[in-house]
Amino acid sequence: MNILNLEGTEDTPKIIFDNQNKVYEISGRSLPEDSAEFFQPVLDWLDEYKNAPDAETAFQFKLEYFNTASSKLILDILSKLEEVDGAKVTWYFHEDDEDMEEAGEEFSELVDVPFEFKTY
């Protein structure tokens, strides 16, 4: 399974999906010009991974900020996780960032994937 590794920039998040080291993390800021194009490799990666996933896969979402176009794609990614057996999500938010906490709660209500919330 290929490693998906995108360096973060000022308007795109850092993404590492690495099955060898068991790291699955999206972090930073997300406000790309074209969110569908930017996140397509993540959806493609999950489409392949769901065919032979580990017994458990812990996906970490550690976002500082995302725009509304990204939120639509984040929901697409989370929906894709419903097809990955053993997937779970840890949603990180800064301890004083109620909006990010609420955003995570809303996503957790929209998809059927176990969510855990942590502050950083």
């Binding site: 569908a36 509304t68 176009a69 639509k72 929901l75 929209l110």
Partner: peptide, 16 residues
């Protein structure tokens, strides 16, 4: 909107 909407041709989610 986020659940039922689709991205527009211009890439907007209709959520702004």
């Amino acid at each position: 909107i986020i659940k039922n909407g689709r991205l527009s041709e211009k890439g907007g989610a209709g959520l702004g």
